[in-house]
Every structure is written in structure tokens, then in C-alpha cells.
Amino acid sequence: MATRILDQTFDPWHAFAQHQQSHAEANKFGATATFVGTMRDFNDEDTVQSMLLEHYPEMTARYLEQLEQDARQRWDLLACLIIHRVGDIHPNDPIVAIACWSAHRRAALDACAWLIETLKHQAPFWKKEMRQQGAYWVEKNTEG
């Protein structure tokens, strides 16, 4: 399973390249679709200085693995990588990185879009923003 939960910052582009280069079927890859979510320094017209990302460790691990399995069943993927941060996060830090590899573009693009939307609505992570006006638990996803 290619899912990781990290408590330190990471370089998503390096992770994608490394995953592709080390994959046994890399010669069959014809399409790579990626999504990287990074931390903004604003929300609701307030400045956000940093963020604490909490999770339910046993459930998030299981959920990310389940998401990867579901994506592989729905689309003809050759490889898939899902990385999510927890802990203290600062503006411009990556929060989530998803890559899907397939022989043709449609499967990779559709699976990647589905994975980030499903992860945001189902995986048990919570953001607590440290705003200029105080700490604030985010309790709703943005529309997209």
C-alpha cells in the first residue's frame, strides 16, 4: 500500500518522482495526475499563522488504505500514492499529496480528483487554525 501519514514536512514532487522511478511497471505509465494541497495564510478574511492537524491515527491509516483500494477497483491504475501531513503546519507547507499513474490520461485524472474529494469528506483529520484573532477549529470544507 502506498499511503503515508507524516508528522514532518515533505517534498511532494520528490516523493512523486521517487515513487515513479522505483515502480516495477514504470515503463507502462502513460499518464500521471497529481494533486498537492498546501497551507494558505488566510481563511475567512483573517490571517492564519499556522495550523495543527489532528487525526484519529488508526482510522486514518485504515481509511487511506481503503481509499487507495477503492480507487484501484474503480479505475485502471498502475500506481497510486497518497501522503497526508499531521502535526504543526505552516503556510506554504504541503498538507496532502496524491498521485495516480495509469496507461491513459482519463483514469489517472478521474481517480486523482475522486481521491482528494473523498479524502476531504471522509478521512478523520481536523484542522485547527492559529489565526490572528485566536485558535479556530475548521468545521467545514470549502466548496472546491
Binding site: 487525526h55 484519529y56 478521512a123 481536523w126 484542522k127
Partner: peptide
């Protein structure tokens, strides 16, 4: 049994 608010990862 776990109780928690709406999830906001990603």
C-alpha cells in the same frame, strides 16, 4: 466508540 466533529483534512 469515537465521537468527533466534521472532518476537514486535505
Amino acid at each position: 466508540v469515537a465521537f468527533f466533529p466534521p472532518v476537514t483534512g486535505g
